[in-house]
């Protein structure tokens, strides 16, 4: 590394300041190999120092944030001495910190990318990938909309393609009203945007640009709820919390498939394809050696943890997937 030669110098400098300023007291370097930021207390020696475990540091996707927040809150209630911080920098932002050993856990609404795996290898970081929940992207319209119940991916593509010229409902399907269509969607930095464009337009981040976008999904909900001729998309949670104001459309994958509405059951069973996506956590394997991090990771996959997933308006893992994830974690803890 570029600055590695300076590192030791800076360390010695800090040490000597400690000693100079407080001659009669002690200042010692703590082995921090397995301790990301914030976790300065007895890091790396959790077996012997269990009374004061380090802080568990989590960052990453804002979609997964409500899950990790709920898990952290309940886990802290049960293990009062374990302190946790959860931050949301987006999947990409979280990964940037994860690959340089600043995090214990990174929330992600998409699988890790190859370049991120390479960076991990470069910094000597091994990680464990766990699926913890499923999200179903919901395509929603105004409740007063009585002309469409089910929409095909092809129709969605007609509306959302980068070169789309569609401005009226009738241009998508002649049977629909000759009224301007008001579009609402995720902002371009989000994993939601990446996933939706990938599924609908076949290429991540390829989308028409003239629509209302906002990183605050509540504004999108409001927009669709206020206009009779509007259409929007966002995570299932925002639909589930606003069912009285919105109407979710069923999705028809192709001509041979049936219309499937987004419900917890269809999303869990995988029939709400292709709009259902898995949500992940990535755990630093060095951090996983600390007992509190191991317990915390296990908690995501317990019955109680999955119940919290459901409470936060996401969809729990199907039984076989859950068992597979539990096994993967147990294997890593051996």
């Amino acid at each position: 590394m570029l600055f590695s030669s300076n590192a030791r110098g800076a360390g010695r400098w800090a040490l000597s300041v400690c000693v100079l300023a407080l001659g009669f007291t002690g200042c010692e370097k703590v082995d921090s190999n397995s301790a990301p930021s914030g976790s300065t207390t007895e890091a790396g020696s959790s077996e012997t120092m269990d009374a004061t475990p380090s802080t568990i540091v989590i960052d990453g996707s804002s979609t997964v944030y409500p899950i990790s927040q709920a898990i952290a809150e309940v886990f802290h209630e049960q293990h009062e001495h374990v302190e946790i911080t959860v931050t949301q920098s987006g999947t990409g932002g979280g990964m940037k910190k994860f690959v340089v050993n600043e995090l214990d856990i990174c929330d992600a609404s998409r699988p890790i990318k190859q370049e991120e795996i390479d960076k991990c290898a470069e910094h000597g970081i091994e990680f464990l990938e766990l699926e913890v929940a499923i999200d179903g992207l919901s395509v929603v319209v105004n409740p007063q909309n009585d002309w469409v119940e089910c929409i095909t991916i092809a129709e969605l593509k007609k509306i959302w393609a980068p070169d789309s010229k569609v401005t009226k409902w009738s241009e998508v399907n002649p049977a629909w009203p000759d009224e301007p269509i008001a579009l609402y969607g995720a902002d371009t930095d989000s994993g939601t945007f990446e996933y939706f464009t990938e599924v609908v337009n076949g290429k991540a981040k390829a989308s028409r640009t003239e629509y209302t976008y906002n990183s605050d999904d509540n504004l999108l909900v409001q927009g669709v709820a206020d206009g009779k001729y509007s259409l929007g998309y966002f995570g299932y949670g925002y639909y589930a919390e606003n069912k009285d104001k919105l109407k979710a459309l069923s999705i028809k994958k192709d001509d041979s498939s049936e219309c499937v509405a987004p419900t917890p059951e269809t999303i869990e069973m995988g029939t709400y394809a292709p709009m259902a996506r898995p949500l992940f956590i990535y755990i630093n394997k060095a951090a996983l050696k600390r007992s509190e991090v191991a317990d915390f990771a296990k908690f995501y996959l317990t019955e109680e943890g999955q119940k919290l997933v459901t409470d936060q308006a996401f969809v729990r893992l199907p039984a076989d997937k859950l068992a597979a994830m539990q096994e993967r974690l147990a294997e890593a803890l051996k």
Partner: peptide
């Protein structure tokens, strides 16, 4: 301050007699 231009992170424990202060250099997200 958070990364200190990328120097490797080290954790320190400062013993003041009546209390110990744990800190890292660089400061991290403190």
């Amino acid at each position: 301050f958070v990364r200190m231009f990328g120097i490797a992170k080290e954790a320190y424990r400062l013993n003041l007699g009546f209390t110990t202060v744990n800190f890292t250099l660089p400061f991290g997200r403190s």
